[in-house]
Nucleic acid binder design. Structure first.
Length: 646
RNA sequence: GCUGCCGUAGCUCAGUGGUAGAGCACUCCCUUGGUAAGGGAGAGGUCGACAGUUCAAUCCUGUCCGGCAGCACCA
C-alpha cells in the first residue's frame, strides 16, 4: 500500500506503485489534462515518474512558478530537434532554461542568422503539432557514447566521459530525436504550445571557457500564453527606450566617438548633472569625516611594481612614454616607463607616507574623485556603463585592525543613505580570495574573517560570491536594483592587509612601536560614469527635480513677455535653480512639446496675463495640469523643492 | 579578445557598379499664437578608413577602425 499525501493535506492510497499521470487522473480529468510534471518530496520529476513509496507529492501545472523553467527547457530541446532536422550535420551540446527564456548551443560550420529564425520557428511549431511523447530512458555509458559517436556528436560523446562515474545517465527521447539530459521534461512536445520566439544568435564558448571551441548559441523565449509573450516583448521595447546611450544623446548629456573609444565627452548638461551628483556626494563625505585629495594620472612603473599592479594588472594598464624614453626602454627594459593609474590606492598611500603618522590620526579616511584608465576588452565596452576612463568616488580608510568593524558599519550606513536618496534598493555579496592573488593564506584568512565579522556587526545579509575578491583582499559588493529590475554592481568595500605593507605605510602605535595600517578600499557609486548611466536608465531620463540638469524652462507665449521671462529666470537662478529660457518665435504648444520630450521637470509659461499679474503658469513633467502661481511664491516653493536631499 | 550583424546628412532610415534621397532637426522669411508639431523657402553628405578588382566602387573583395547583441573579461 502506497500513501500519497497531496498539498491540501489529503492522503490517497494506491495498492501498487503509481505514476504522476495516474495520480493526476485519479484526482480528476481536468487536472490530468493540465498536469505537466510531478513534485515528489519537493523534487521535480517527470509526470511519468512512478512513485513506489509513501510520499508527499504535488501535480505541477502551468500555474506553478517552476513550470515555466520546465517549459523553457523543453523549448530548448524542441529548438535543437528543429535545427537538426533542418540542418543535418549540426551538433548539439547544451540547452538550458534561463531567467527569461532559453538557448541551445550548436556546433555548425555555417553561421546561423536571424533570417533563419522564421524557418526554425515554423519547424518547432510542427514538432509541437506532432505532439511527440517525451520519454525518459536510462542508458549505460557505452551505449550512449556509441550512439553519439555514430551520430557525429563528438561534443556530447566527450561530455559522457566527463560525467561523474557514479552518475546515472538519462536520455530524453521525443520521436526520433534524443538528448542526454537530467530532466525533468513535459510529457509531450504538444504541451510546449506556440508562445515562443527566437530572439538572437551569438557565439558562446564550449563549457564557458574562452580557450575552448566557439559554439553558436541560439536564444529564444517562451511562455504559456501569447499574452505573456507579448508582454515580455513589450517590456524589452520599453527597456530599449530607456537606453542611456539614446537618452544621453537626445538630452544632450554626453557623446562618445571613435577616436576615444570607451571614453566620454561630457556636454554642458551632462556635466551639470555630474557636478550636482558630485556635490551631493562630497557633502555626504565631508559630513562622514572624509578628507579629499587629488593624485597624479601618470606614475612611474616602479610604483606599480611595488604595489603588485605591474605583475597582476598590467594587461589592463595604459603605458605611456615620450619618444625618447620609448627608444631607451626598447634598448633597456629596466628603463623608466610610466603608466596611467588604473586605481587610486597606491597614490593615496604615497600621501599617507608623507611624514610620520600617529595612531591618533586613524582612522584616516582619504577620498578622491579619481580618474582612472583601464584597458578593457573591446567587447566589454558599453556606452558609459563600461568605459576605459572612469572616475571613481574612491576612498581609502587607513585604520587599525580593531577599527575595521566600526568603519565597516559607518560605511554601510553612508552607502545605505546615498542609495536611499537616489531611490535604489540593493543587496550585498561577499567575494572571497581569487585564484590569482598576493599574500599568504594566513593573511587572507585574517582579512576574510575580519570582513565577515564586520559585515555581521553591520547587520548585512551576505550572498557568497566565491573567488571574486580583489587580488589584494576580499570585498563586499553592493548591488543595486533599478526601476525595471536590473542589477548593477556599484558599491564596494575591500579589506586590504597587503598594499600598505608593500608600499611601506606605517604609523606609530600607542606603545611607540611601528605598525602597518589596514586599508579599506571603498566606493559608493563605483564610478560616476556608470552611476550616471544607471540613473538615466532608472529614471528613463525623467530625473528628480534636484538632479535634473535643467530644472525649469521659462517659455514665452508672445515676444512681449521676453523681458519678464528673463526676470523670472534670473529670480529662480538667484534662488539656486538651473533655469533656461525659451524666447523663440514659436507657439507655446511647440515649446511645451519640445521641453516635455527633453524631460524638463518644470515648464513655466509666461504671457501678457502673467506680466500684468506678476505670475507664472507652471506645468510639471508628466502632467497636463497648469498651476498659476504668484512669482514670489513660485520662486520660494520651487527652489525649496529643488534642493538636494543633503 | 571571440562569434554574428552593422557603419549613407546632426538624428532615424531608404537606395544604386556610372560620385545620392526622405522625415525630423538646422538657417532665413511670414506668422505673436495660453499648454505636446502654424506656413513657406534654403542650406547640409570624401556614403567609417585604407588597399584591391573594374573603363568606372558608396555598392564587389580584403585589411583595419568603430558600433550593436551574446560569450569571455570586469583585479
Amino acid at each position: 500500500m502506497i500513501n500519497i499525501s497531496l498539498p491540501d493535506g489529503s492522503v490517497r492510497s494506491f495498492d501498487k506503485p503509481v505514476s504522476g499521470a495516474d495520480i493526476a487522473a485519479s484526482i480528476g480529468p481536468g487536472l490530468a489534462k493540465a498536469a505537466l510534471a510531478l513534485r515528489v518530496d519537493g523534487k521535480m520529476k517527470d509526470l511519468s515518474h512512478v512513485v513506489d513509496h509513501d510520499a508527499k507529492i504535488g501535480i505541477v501545472t502551468s500555474r506553478d512558478s517552476e513550470a515555466l523553467e520546465l517549459l523553457r527547457h523543453d523549448a530548448a530541446h524542441v529548438l535543437a530537434q528543429a535545427v537538426q532536422e533542418l540542418y543535418p550535420g549540426t551538433q548539439i551540446t547544451f540547452g538550458p532554461a534561463t531567467e527569461d527564456g532559453f538557448y541551445y548551443d550548436f556546433v555548425r560550420e555555417q553561421p546561423f542568422s536571424p533570417d533563419d529564425f522564421a524557418k526554425i520557428e515554423q519547424r518547432m511549431a510542427e514538432i509541437v503539432d506532432r505532439d511527440l511523447p517525451i520519454t525518459r530512458e536510462i542508458w549505460d555509458r557505452a551505449k550512449i557514447k556509441d550512439y553519439f559517436k555514430q551520430h557525429g556528436e563528438s561534443f556530447k560523446a566527450q561530455w559522457v566521459d566527463e560525467l561523474p562515474k557514479d552518475e546515472v545517465i538519462s536520455v530524453y527521447k521525443q520521436g526520433d530525436w534524443l538528448d542526454m539530459c537530467l530532466g525533468p521534461h513535459l510529457p509531450s512536445t504538444g504541451k510546449l504550445g506556440k508562445a515562443f520566439k527566437l530572439t538572437k544568435v551569438s557565439g558562446a564558448y564550449w563549457r564557458g571557457d574562452a580557450n575552448n571551441a566557439q559554439l553558436q548559441r541560439v536564444y529564444g523565449t517562451v511562455f504559456f500564453s501569447d499574452k505573456e509573450l507579448k508582454a515580455y516583448l513589450h517590456r524589452i521595447e520599453e527597456a530599449e527606450k530607456r537606453d542611456h546611450r539614446k537618452l544621453g544623446r537626445e538630452m544632450a548629456l554626453f557623446h562618445q566617438q571613435e577616436d576615444s573609444a570607451g571614453m566620454v565627452y561630457w556636454h554642458p548638461k551632462g556635466w551639470t548633472f555630474w557636478r550636482t551628483l558630485e556635490g551631493y556626494l562630497r557633502r555626504k563625505l565631508e559630513a562622514g569625516g572624509y578628507v579629499e585629495v587629488k593624485t597624479p594620472q601618470l606614475n612611474d612603473r616602479r610604483l606599480w611594481e611595488k604595489s603588485g599592479h605591474w605583475e597582476n594588472f598590467r594587461e589592463n594598464m595604459y603605458l605611456s612614454e615620450n619618444e625618447e624614453g620609448l627608444k631607451e626602454y626598447v634598448a633597456d627594459p629596466a628603463r623608466r616607463m610610466f603608466a596611467l593609474k588604473p586605481m587610486n590606492c597606491p597614490c593615496h598611500i604615497q600621501i599617507f607616507n608623507q611624514g610620520l603618522r600617529s595612531y591618533r590620526e586613524l582612522p584616516l579616511r582619504m577620498a578622491e574623485m579619481g580618474s582612472c584608465h583601464r584597458f578593457e576588452p573591446s567587447g566589454a565596452l558599453h556606452g558609459i556603463l563600461r568605459v576605459r576612463n572612469f572616475t571613481q568616488d574612491d576612498a581609502h580608510i587607513f585604520c587599525s585592525e580593531d577599527q575595521i568593524e566600526v568603519e565597516t558599519i559607518r560605511f554601510c550606513k553612508l552607502l545605505g543613505d546615498v542609495y536611499r536618496d537616489l531611490g535604489f534598493e540593493y543587496f550585498v555579496k561577499f567575494a572571497d580570495r581569487p585564484p590569482v592573488r598576493i599574500g599568504s593564506d594566513a593573511i587572507w584568512d585574517q582579512a576574510e574573517g575580519a570582513l565577515k565579522s564586520a559585515s555581521k556587526a553591520a547587520g548585512l545579509d551576505l550572498i557568497l560570491n566565491p573567488g571574486e575578491g580583489a587580488f589584494y583582499g576580499p570585498k563586499l559588493e553592493f548591488v543595486l536594483r533599478d526601476a525595471i529590475g536590473r542589477d548593477w554592481q556599484c558599491g564596494t568595500l575591500q579589506v586590504d592587509f597587503m598594499l600598505p605593507e608593500r608600499l611601506g605605510a606605517s604609523y606609530v602605535a600607542e606603545d611607540g612601536s611601528r605598525k602597518v595600517p589596514v586599508m579599506l578600499h571603498r566606493a559608493i557609486f563605483g564610478s560616476f560614469e556608470r552611476m550616471i548611466g544607471i540613473l538615466i536608465e532608472h529614471h528613463a531620463g525623467r530625473f528628480p527635480l534636484w538632479l535634473a540638469p535643467t530644472q525649469a524652462v521659462v517659455a514665452t507665449i508672445v515676444n512681449d513677455a521676453d523681458s519678464y521671462a528673463n526676470e523670472v529666470a534670473s529670480q529662480l537662478r538667484a534662488a539656486g535653480m538651473r533655469v533656461d529660457t525659451d524666447l523663440r518665435n514659436e507657439k507655446i504648444n511647440y515649446k511645451v512639446r519640445e521641453h516635455s520630450l527633453a524631460h524638463v521637470p518644470l515648464i513655466l509659461a509666461v504671457g501678457r496675463r502673467d506680466i500684468e499679474g506678476k505670475t507664472v503658469a507652471v506645468r510639471r513633467l508628466g502632467s497636463e495640469k497648469q498651476e498659476v502661481l504668484e512669482l514670489g511664491a513660485a520662486v520660494t516653493n520651487l527652489s525649496e523643492e529643488a534642493r538636494p536631499p543633503f
